[in-house]
Structures are given as structure tokens and as C-alpha cells.
Amino acid sequence: MAIVVNLDVVLARRKMRSKELAERIGITEANVSLLKSGKVKGVRFDTLERICEVLDCQPGDILEWRRD
């Protein structure tokens, strides 16, 4: 996969659980789990914005492009 989701890394750095992130950004824990595993087609800008706000990070900290 070309786009890698590093949400689990950022969560670990912030010592935050998926459940808390899900509650604070207003999506289900199942969707956070899907996002962490990269099993989603896309991330809405407003979801990304809330994640960045809660985790105090940049979109580039969460999403990374890697050559296949």
C-alpha cells in the first residue's frame, strides 16, 4: 500500500487509547481501528482535522507515502 497510516504510532507517543480518540473526535472505535489498520478508502478532511487537533499533530504525522 502506498499510503501508510501512522495513527497507532502517534497514539502511542501521546499515550492515548483508541477509545479515547474515538470519543474525542466523534467517530466509532471500530472506525478508528479501521483507520489505524489502513483498511479504509479515505479519510474525510474534517475527521483528519479533528484527529490533528486532539493529537496536536500535522496530517503528515499520520499519513505517509511509501514507494511500493
Partner: peptide, 9 residues
């Protein structure tokens, strides 16, 4: 489209 939209979080 709705199905595709459901796959966005």
C-alpha cells in the same frame, strides 16, 4: 457513491 462514501471515515 453511497457505498463508497461509507468506506470513508
Amino acid at each position: 457513491i453511497a457505498e463508497e462514501n461509507r468506506q470513508f471515515v
